[in-house]
Nucleic acid binder design. Structure first.
Length: 847
RNA sequence: GCGGACGUGGCGGAAUGGUAGACGCCGGGGACUUAAAAUCCCCUGAGCCUUGCUCGUGCGGGUUCGAGUCCCGCCGUCCGUACCA
């Protein structure tokens, strides 16, 4: 055995062996139970970052552990390869998005392989290749045939300089994030997916997802935003026209004191035509900021239109109509009725404009008509001052008024969702071409499946802003598949979130002639454990759930939910190093590599003078508090960084990176190496060959580490392994000790696979790969110690401990407790009134 | 505002209502060495009148023989989200 483990040699050696032997290739024909372990696939930005390492290490430990437990494991990897950064690189550097992306993939794949992940690379997917997106086009056509895809005119953010549509996130203070140009609202025909058809089942499905974090389920629930209420009409006094409003509090209708419409409501627009003051007010509303802070402090502003509407329950009761800045056109009907006593916003508004504030729900005993608090009452109660509804509870009143509205014909029950249909059109080049053709006579015609894939042309240039597909000389000119006349291809491409909405299906099954084989999907899916960042809690995870349900509805698959369990891991963080720039008072940041850290102080290597140590925050390029996984692997080896990713912090929380921490991990790798070299160092004599205490510890650790890995509590598994390691090191030589070392190696194999293989094969070159070994078994009888330490308390305070045989009787424990000097001193001669004995745990004497 | 998570040593964090601080990091002391690295051993919540005692899990109450854990009320930090009618 060499003295030190050398990862620079061993890591690559074992990675090549696993690759040559196809060790981690998932076998579709296997009759073992199956396990699909999946981590969110990366965007090929160029380099992997430490967050990827954490994510994929967790998945890898689980995948390797499941293999050892006898499962046929599918653990694949791929690339979410379409998207804007490739086009930006094309514009900035003059390279082709495809070349840039494929080069990044090659680099990142090599980086991942250096970490020794147990991935089935034979199933590697890159979403930017026609072999993938062609099938996506087929699925899109299937959804179209199933009535789940449609086109409609919709307003978009248009950047007139870059000549492209921008996502809301790309508009900063009304300007394009790249060009700085004022963004225009444009109406464009866009493709939509009918996700709203699934609003109710996506909501209900959340309750079946026991393996998902409560937090993510709540976020999706809020995003879907179901509300139930009444849509009703307030007739404009003396006309047949009316204003439709939507309310979730129809029970408070008797407390109404005004109706308010949004600034961009059609009625506001028509009134503004010959009212300059209103035009100005509407303009003011649109200027208002949209940030949280601005909205928090924004004043409720209204413009009295002079119109009045009839109350639906009493035509002689007239309410004023305002245009108000807090009413939004894109929610409900763009109009509300205000009941100030029971809605804070309405109350603020009513106080400002001197409108009546009438109590219609009793607040405890208070039934007075005039409501004088400045805080609206929104709690439960019985209705007051509400005519025929007086005396009902809030839910009774809601039901009653909805029934009456329906009967009298001025309104009906309505369930609203915040969720909007998913607009998937992007005026970009680097995405999946939408497989449709526009024909002057036939209209919008789907590309026949036999003509798929619609392949992106390679010969495009990015010197001119805008979508190069639009100005390509030949690509878009085709004959209509229906009538044969000259026609044009759709030049929009699909949102990249479509690519990631079904990739897990393609991992499970990759026929050439169709997106997937349903029977294979049935065998592998749903994903048993999905692992990724919380930032995908809504968009990706909701879209993937929708896409799965949509495919189920049109009969392509039989599952409704793609991910049985979801785990969202925390970020990797690092302290920051900075100095204040005397020129402008702004901090200048330094990277960890530029800094020398000793204890609690840090110096800049360049000049030896101290730098300020800032708080521990998410790694980001702007704060320079990043570490490059490749450099860590080169310095310490793959197993050390893997071990670090699993140690200390619970996986759902943030993990603070530290140089001292990784060094500690590297030391532990060597410590294990030395210990593994001691296998076979048995006892000198027969007496030493059985070490019952160590054997118990071993069995307990095997059971506990397995349970911890299954619960993804890697930090606890790590702590147990440290404990066992310490116990083995201290134990005298024995055959038990050798056995413990052997099994310890099996337990760390999923976490430090290179060390495990290298140490095994250095001793036994012909041994089976440890990656193919089974998880060690344990004897349940060995989990229980035969001696226990029992705590002796007096009045609930610990005074002594005694060691007794497990199962010692209550009377004996009580007698032993009373026999303790320390206990007698604590009792101070007082008589014992009560004794609580918990066998094998404690005795509490109450005096 | 609403929703969620969290609050335990110098730090990351353990702890089915039953011995708070496992395990790791940092720090201190020692052994080995000509020396260093590596390795190994010991100590490491605070305080005190140090066989031991007192205090101690954000704060204030409560339930209990016994509370980090359960209940009520606060405070703070982080994340998400929003004039959602």
């Amino acid at each position: 055995m060499t003295e030190r483990f050398d990862p620079s040699q061993a890591d690559g050696r074992w990675q090549r062996v696993w690759d040559e032997r196809q060790t981690f290739r998932a076998d579709d024909t296997s009759d073992k139970p199956r396990s699909f372990v999946l981590e969110m696939f990366p965007y090929p930005s160029g380099r992997i970052h430490i967050g990827h390492v954490r994510n994929y290490t967790m998945g890898d430990v689980l995948a390797r552990y499941k293999r050892m437990q006898g499962f046929e494991v599918l653990h694949p990897m791929g690339w979410d390869a379409f998207g804007m950064p490739a086009e930006n690189a094309a514009m900035e550097k003059g390279v082709h998005p495809g070349g840039w992306t494929r080069e990044n993939i090659a680099n990142m794949k090599a980086q991942l392989q250096r970490l020794g992940f147990a991935l089935d690379w034979s199933r590697e997917i890159s979403t930017c290749e026609p072999e993938y997106y062609g099938h996506e086009q087929a699925l899109f056509l299937d959804l179209y045939a199933g009535g789940l895809v449609y086109r409609k005119e919709s307003a978009v953010n248009w950047d007139p300089v870059d000549m492209t549509v921008l996502a809301n996130e790309q508009v900063i203070d009304g300007r394009g994030w790249r060009s700085g140009a004022l963004v225009e609202k444009r109406k464009l025909s866009q493709w939509f997916l009918k996700i709203t058809d699934f609003a109710e089942e996506l909501l209900e499905g959340l309750s079946t997802l026991d393996g998902w974090p409560e937090k993510v389920r709540t976020m999706q629930e809020n995003w879907i935003g179901k509300s139930q209420g009444l849509r009703c009409t307030f007739r404009l006094a003396g006309t047949q026209d009316g204003i439709e409003v939507y309310t979730t509090r129809p029970d408070t209708l008797f407390g109404a004191s005004f109706v308010a419409i949004a600034a961009d409501h059609p009625l506001a627009a028509s009134l503004a035509a010959n009212a300059p003051e209103l035009q100005e007010f509407i303009a003011t509303c649109k200027r208002g900021g949209t940030t949280a802070a601005e909205l928090e402090t924004a004043e409720k502003l209204g413009f009295n239109t002079g119109l009045s509407v009839e109350h639906p329950l009493d035509p002689d009761w007239h309410l004023p109509v305002y245009v108000a800045n807090f009413v939004l056109m894109d929610y409900g009907t763009g109009a509300v009725f205000g009941c100030p006593a029971h809605d804070q916003r309405d109350l603020d508004f009513a106080r400002k404009y001197g409108l009546p504030v009438h109590r219609v729900v009793a607040d405890g005993d208070n039934e007075a008509l005039e409501y004088d608090s400045d805080e609206a009452y929104t709690g439960p109660g019985r209705l007051v001052n509400s005519g025929w509804m007086t005396g009902m509870t809030v839910p009774e009143a809601k039901a009653a008024i909805i029934a009456k509205a329906g009967h009298d014909g001025w309104g009906e029950a309505e369930t609203q969702y915040r969720l909007r249909d998913w607009g998937v059109s992007r005026q970009r080049y680097w995405g999946t071409p939408i497989p449709f053709i526009h024909c002057e006579t036939c209209g919008v015609v789907p590309v026949p499946k036999s003509d798929l894939p619609v392949v992106l042309p390679e010969d495009v240039d990015f010197k001119t802003p805008g979508n190069p597909l639009v100005r390509h000389a030949t690509w878009k000119h085709v004959d209509c598949p229906s009538c044969g006349a000259k026609a044009e291809r759709e030049t929009d491409t699909l949102d990249t979130f479509v690519n990631s909405s079904w990739y897990f299906l393609r991992f499970a099954s990759q026929p050439a002639d169709k997106p997937f084989d349903e029977s294979e999907i049935a065998r592998w899916l749903p994903v048993e454990q999905y692992i990724g960042g919380i930032e995908h809690a809504i968009l990706h995870l909701l879209y993937a759930r929708f896409w799965t349900r949509a495919l189920e509805r049109i009969g392509k698959i039989k599952i409704k939910e793609p991910f049985a369990s979801l785990f969202t891991q925390g970020m990797v963080t690092h302290e920051t190093y900075s100095r204040v720039d005397p020129a402008n008072g702004q901090p200048i940041y330094f990277s960890p590599a530029e800094v020398d850290k000793q204890g609690d102080a840090a110096k800049l290597k360049a000049d030896g003078a101290p730098v300020d140590i800032g708080r521990v925050i998410k790694m980001s390029k702007s704060k320079k508090n990043v570490v490059d996984p490749d450099e860590i692997v080169a310095t310490y080896g793959a197993d050390a960084i893997r071990w670090f990713m699993l140690s200390d912090s619970p996986p759902e929380r943030d993990l603070p990176w530290s140089e001292a921490g990784i060094e500690g991990c590297a030391r532990f790798v060597q410590r294990l190496w030395r210990l593994f070299g001691q296998i076979g160092a048995g006892g000198a004599g027969a007496d030493a060959n059985n070490d019952i205490a160590l054997e118990r510890k071993l069995h307990q650790t095997v059971a506990a580490v397995a349970a911890d890995i299954e619960a993804l509590s890697f930090n606890k598994a790590v702590a147990r392994i440290y404990e066992l390691t310490g116990a083995i090191e201290k134990a005298p030589l024995s055959s038990t000790r050798s056995d413990a070392i052997y099994k310890l190696r099996l337990m760390i194999a999923p976490m430090m696979p290179h060390l495990a293989e290298e140490s095994l094969h250095e001793r036994w070159p012909d041994a089976e790969l440890i990656s193919n070994e089974a998880w060690p078994s344990f004897d349940p009888a060995m989990l229980i110690d035969d001696e226990v330490t029992v705590a002796i308390q007096v009045m609930g305070k610990l005074r002594d401990t005694i060691t007794v045989a497990k199962g010692t009787g209550k009377e004996e424990l009580e007698a032993l407790a009373l026999a303790s000097d320390k206990v007698q001193r604590a009792l101070e001669g007082k008589p014992v009134k009560k004794v609580i004995v918990v066998p094998d745990r404690l005795v509490n004497l109450v005096a």
